[in-house]
């Protein structure tokens, strides 16, 4: 039963972060919200009994993708919010 509650909480967090990523004005907050989606998705994978996928998603989706986006935004300074 606690797993069901954790699952519902994670689903609400990820959907809320997705809607926030669409509506927010600044690009960097949208990027952090997409990182939150990946992190909660990785815990969902762990609850769905797929630990390999959870490991990959936590390192790639929440770690490297955010850094790659940040490096790209460093090169387009001045144009990322229009």
């Amino acid at each position: 039963m606690p797993e069901i509650f954790a699952l519902i909480l994670l689903i609400v967090i990820s959907l809320g972060a997705a809607v926030y990523a669409v509506f927010t004005k600044k690009t960097i907050t949208a990027l952090i919200a997409s990182g939150i989606i990946s992190l909660s998705a990785s815990i969902i994978y762990l609850l769905m009994a797929a630990p390999d996928v959870a490991m990959t998603e936590a390192t790639i989706g929440a770690g490297l993708t955010t850094v790659v986006f940040l490096y790209a935004m460093k090169h387009v300074k001045g144009g990322e919010d229009d």
Binding site: T56, I60, L64
Partner: peptide, 17 residues
Amino acid sequence: SPGGGFQGGVVIASGFL
């Protein structure tokens, strides 16, 4: 155990990062 080539490679890349 859980893990493998792709995950290990990404961890090495994050050390480089």
